[in-house]
Computed example of a mutant assay.
Amino acid sequence: MSIFTPLDRAAASAFELQGSYKGWIHSIEGLRGFAAFLVYLVHYATLIRPWMPEKSITYYVSETLFSIGNVGVDIFFAISGFLIYAMLIRRERPFLPYAKRRIARIYPVFLAVMLIYTALSFVVPSESKIPTGGEQAVWYLIANYLLLPGIFDIEPMIVVAWSLSYEMFFYLVIPIIMTVCGLRKVPGTLRILMWFLLWVGVYFVAPDHFRASMLIVGILVFETSQLISRDRGSASITLCALTAFAAVLAFKASIYLDVVTFNNAGKLSKVLLFGACYLLCIAVFCKDGWLSRCFSGRYFRYFGNMSYSFYLIHGLTLKFIFLVMGILLPAEIYASSLWFWVLFLPAFLASSAVSAALFLLVERPFSLDGVGVFDLMRSRSVSAS
């Protein structure tokens, strides 16, 4: 028996999840893991920046990855739009049980991480974001615990938590829109037109909230999936999706690095990103091509299944790593491009380990299938005996 077989079984037991509905698309899990990795690039590049000699090749590599990594949140939004819309458009669901389930999906892990951040704010006040005034501090904490940063101009205590504000707003508003507009009775082509026009409206009317409009990408992908065949044109669509996605990432990086400076370059990048994410999701969710099969790989999926925990806790893990590094190897003395390459994988593995613990202790038992780490340990001991 291969030495990896027990490890494979343990990983499957811990991180494999049962699809929530018939026809579950496993490649979604893998793409979610890829999105989480992109977000990791942002925070890793940010925190290692003091050790990067300016104008070095590695410095530009780091800055490029920073600009590329921001797309990870956009992919997360597209995935959420696809999944929630797919669930609701199939049949009407009672609002209160649905809302309760959505809150249960978001809050346990969020509350666990928020409590850690709150405690550390008092332990390490130099890193705290809590205002010094008593009343201001209370209101700031209430706003963060209620997921108000993001939609409102409030600094989030957890850097990435701004996106959860939009997620929760989408969760609660989308079933109301469907019921009021009677969307389940509207032909699919008209729904596609309606959602596209809504995206255009957000683009022109509410540019400050544009990133949340990437949720509409997922909606349009679902509607498109009802009109196309899974097995026709897979290779060509996959090639188009990868080409478009790579081109958009290169364009965004060029803007960030001031290589591209023409007027309205930023606005153009938003339009191109919308199209590239749409094509990417079509290739991954709606086709049986090699890209979809790649993201369906088990370790892509395992990482994707714990990606929400990773999303919320990896920044704190990285912050701890670089705070310790700042004490032992201060940047003003030990700055070197080598650190970027030496620490990249260990920092990622450390972040993944902490995230796995959060997933097994909080997210899986309280937000997913109710199976906790101790249940997994008991089931393994029974199977071994």
Rank of each mutant, 00 (worst) to 15 (best):
I219E: 03
N264P: 00
S269D: 11
I282R: 00
I216H: 01
Y203W: 12
L268G: 11
T224S: 13
V221L: 00
L227Y: 11
I219P: 05
W199D: 03
K319D: 12
V259L: 14
T189Y: 11
F222T: 03
N263M: 13
L272M: 11
L268P: 08
F222C: 03
M214D: 06
A247I: 10
H209N: 14
D231Y: 09
G233D: 08
Q226G: 13
L193Y: 10
A212L: 02
K270R: 12
F196Y: 10
L257Y: 09
P207I: 02
L239A: 14
G218I: 05
F204G: 08
I219L: 09
Y203G: 00
A276V: 04
W290D: 02
Q226A: 14
R211Y: 15
Y311V: 09
Y311D: 05
M214T: 09
N264S: 15
F274K: 03
L239P: 01
F274H: 00
A241L: 06
A250R: 05
F285M: 10
V221E: 03
W290Q: 01
L312Y: 07
L268K: 07
S234N: 11
F295E: 01
T243A: 15
Q226E: 13
P207L: 07
L280Q: 05
V248G: 05
C294D: 02
C294M: 15
L197I: 14
I192Q: 02
F262C: 10
F300K: 02
L215I: 12
A212W: 00
G297Q: 07
S307I: 02
F274V: 05
C277T: 11
E223K: 01
L257T: 15
Y299C: 10
F320I: 15
A276I: 05
V217W: 01
L291A: 07
M214F: 14
L273G: 02
F245E: 02
V217K: 00
A206I: 14
N264C: 12
L280M: 14
N264Y: 15
N263E: 13
Y302R: 09
I219F: 07
S236Y: 09
S254C: 12
L249S: 12
I192H: 07
A276D: 01
Q226V: 12
K252T: 14
G289K: 04
L312P: 04
R301D: 06
L198T: 12
A250H: 08
R293I: 06
F210K: 10
F196N: 07
T317N: 08
L193W: 10
F222H: 15
L316E: 05
V200M: 11
S236H: 10
D208L: 14
S309E: 08
Y256G: 04
L318K: 08
T189I: 13
L257D: 06
V200T: 02
E223S: 09
L273H: 02
G315D: 04
G218D: 03
R298M: 08
K319M: 13
F245W: 09
F303P: 02
I219N: 03
E223Q: 12
A241H: 06
F310N: 03
D208K: 11
S292F: 01
